[in-house]
């Protein structure tokens, strides 16, 4: 009897978690200027519309937004944007993400794709508060983190997000 209850509780709990994760996984979120730790959603991407994403309200304090240099990521920044992917060995969706980002960066001139081994760069992982792999950051030409996604993002969403930075 107890076994049946545990079984049902586990199946229900895991299903709820799985459905929730499937919904938020890979969603690109715009990093607000004020609070880099609490990214806000990009409204234009959720509905798939072509509206240009406006700057967040409030005072513009660019220095609060995380800034990455080519020394941080171990590679040159792209001339218009850089897509930074954090990966680890035990990460199945990292491979898919690599393929998608490779394709996008090959398609749009000036966009660089840099893959970083999270385990080898734990300081950077802590500084950017990266909790899982893959995590994808999109930097503008200056190296500021403008968009981030935890989980494998969809190709169309990445292209749309890059479009807003060009």
């Amino acid at each position: 009897m107890t076994g049946l209850l545990v079984l049902l509780a586990v199946l229900l709990g895991a299903s709820a978690f799985g459905v929730y994760r499937r919904r938020v996984d890979g969603q690109l979120r715009q990093v607000s200027r004020e609070r880099p730790d609490e990214p806000t959603e990009i409204p234009a991407l959720v509905e798939g519309s072509v509206a240009v994403v406006g700057a967040p309200d409030g005072p513009q304090v660019p220095h609060h937004r995380e800034h990455l240099t080519s020394a941080d990521i171990g590679a040159e920044l792209g001339s218009s944007a850089t897509v930074v992917q954090f990966s680890s060995a035990f990460c199945a969706p990292c491979r898919t993400t690599r393929v998608v980002l490779d394709e996008v960066s090959g398609m749009i001139p000036g966009v660089a794709h840099v893959e970083i081994d999270a385990e080898a760069h734990l300081d950077l992982v802590r500084r950017l508060d990266i909790r899982r792999t893959p995590t994808v950051l999109i930097l503008d030409a200056a190296g500021d983190v403008r968009v981030r996604a935890a989980g494998a993002p969809r190709k169309a969403d990445v292209i749309a997000a890059l479009g807003t930075l060009m």
Partner: peptide
């Protein structure tokens, strides 16, 4: 079950969090 039903690897997700808490950079 998460693996079978959602293709989701729970241990893999916990791995980086574990490394963040326990580990220094290995390289």
């Amino acid at each position: 079950f998460l693996n079978a039903a959602f293709n989701f690897c729970l241990g893999c997700e916990m791995y980086l969090i574990g490394r963040r808490i326990l580990g220094r950079s290995s390289v």
